[in-house]
Amino acid sequence: MSTPIDYLLHLADNAVVLGQRNAEWCGHGPILEEDMALANVSLDLIGQARLLYQRAAELMGGDATEDKLAYFRGPHEFRNYTLLELPHHGPLVGYAAADRDYATTIVRNFLYSALMVHVWDGLQQSADASLAAIAAKSLKETSYHLHHSRDWLVRMGDGTEESHARAQAAVNHLMPYTEEFWTTSPAEGAAVAAKIGIDVWALRPAWDALVNDALAEATLTRPNFHGYVTEGKIGLHSEHLSYLLGEMQGLARAHPGATW
């Protein structure tokens, strides 16, 4: 059964999972300024996740808390887009090892923030006043994330031969995962019906325009899509999420009931 809570969890899980991924660069960035920029993006996302989990916990009542929702749900209960849980490199199985690739990080941040600027903008009119307030705050942050990732996308695409090739490979790898944006999950459908959520499908032309414009400026090509549409937002994830959550949740789960 779907309630607006599932929709809040979808938004919160998106934020926490991408926040976790971005924070992996802390101390390893290509230049100090980027270490700080990605830490900042991560902080914003963790902050958004906290507010959304808090709102969900409030609606759930009982002993629900932001940390119970973030730390004590399994991968099948997470409702984030599959795109956001992928490691910072090309397509490899969950237990493969590879160096982090900054192009993958940047392209993902771009594709996601290009969607979320529109989502947050729309959610400012949500019937849930708390969500509308979170959206207003998140919109400002996401506009910066879009600005940051778009700038780097263009620099990489129109930079050197190597950076162009890396950026194109990242676009080719990640673009198919964005197809998940345009399907409607039961939680999204219910939230739209309750005027709490927004119809993401309607945002597609605006997203396409933003993406096509940036790719053209970056001298990159948008690949044609044919293939599997991921379903992370209904709990069917890639192999990568259980590793991410295993690391994120391990310490909290080793001390259930502890306060930090």
């Binding site: 700080m36 902050g47 310490l251």
Partner: peptide, 29 residues
């Protein structure tokens, strides 16, 4: 940044995670 960065991914609450990221970011600054 590295010894503390070692615990960012495993911080046991979201509040502590945010505090730690902000702190490590300060060190970068």
């Amino acid at each position: 940044m590295l010894p503390e960065g070692n615990w960012i991914s495993r911080a046991p609450s979201l509040k502590r995670k945010a505090i730690l990221i902000a702190k490590v970011q300060d060190e970068g600054g």
